[in-house]
């Protein structure tokens, strides 16, 4: 499904290399986790996959189902099934959350040649999904993420993911700043979307999220590279010993 080969990325505006050859292959239905010290390039990788400007790909490739992701506009990547839950969801004053969701859902359907959802169909679906994430009517009415608490923003990301039903979901520190209950809600939201075909890339600092979303593979990223990959036990090792041992081991 997602195939990243030797991906090298720098900044557009300054001469700074951030990703220094990332290799990552995620198969259908798999859950991968990426852990790693701050500043190692995890968010950069997810932004580059989603198509954010300001970065310069200097080498390597990234494909989704064989299609060159890096060649597509961000909205095409979304329509092709890629979704990024932002580490810092963006506030958009003046745009209602509901309008935003409906516009996004229908834009993707249109791009894929599917019929758009009617207002009624959309409303029914959004209500059910919002309810399971404990998102109330007020949050749906308010402008996108404006005045939302940290936890509300993250749950709102998961609601978008549920509504858009992507094939490849990247979650960038969706658990950071959440209390245990909120984290459980988010994990349940993610697990509800696991259907054996949909794949996930979960970026996190904490083993705790991985207790709820069981990864097939855990990767450690440091200084723009994946330096070690393993099973769920790797996350436990990080939890117990931090990154120092692993960094020393590969140095």
């Amino acid at each position: 499904m997602l195939d990243i080969k030797n991906l090298q990325v720098g900044l557009e505006e300054e001469d700074k290399q951030i990703l220094k050859g990332v290799d990552l292959k995620i198969g259908e239905g798999e859950v991968h986790a990426i852990m790693g010290p701050n500043g190692s390039g995890k968010s950069t990788m997810s932004y580059v996959l989603a198509g954010k400007s300001g970065y310069k790909v200097t080498g390597g490739s990234a494909t989704l189902y064989g299609d060159d992701l890096l060649d597509m506009a961000p909205e095409e990547r979304a329509a092709a099934g890629l979704f990024l839950a932002f580490q810092y969801p963006v506030e958009i004053p003046g745009v209602g959350n509901m309008t935003f969701l409906r516009t996004a859902v229908n834009a993707q359907r249109k791009a894929r040649g599917e019929p758009e959802l009617t207002a009624g169909e959309f409303l029914k679906e959004v209500r059910t999904k919002a309810k399971s994430l404990k998102i109330d009517a007020d949050m749906l009415k308010r402008p996108v993420n404006v005045g939302f608490s940290g936890g509300e923003k993250k749950r709102n990301e998961i609601l978008q993911m549920a509504m858009l039903a992507p094939k490849m979901c990247i979650l960038d520190e969706t658990d950071s700043g959440l209390d245990v209950d909120a984290m459980k809600l988010v994990a349940e939201g993610v697990n509800a979307l696991r259907d054996g075909k949909r794949s996930f890339l979960v970026i996190t600092h904490y083993q705790r999220l991985l207790d709820h979303i069981k990864p097939d593979v855990v990767h450690i990223m440091a200084d723009g590279k994946i330096i070690k990959s393993g099973g769920p036990e790797l996350a436990l090792e990080v939890e117990n010993n931090g990154y120092a041992d692993i960094l020393a081991e590969v140095a």
């Binding site: 198509g51 909205e75 506030e91 516009t103």
Partner: peptide
Amino acid sequence: AIFYLLSRGVPKAQAEDM
């Protein structure tokens, strides 16, 4: 904000209009 909208599949011109 524009990138956020794009990343949800909203085309550029429509995102700007929003």
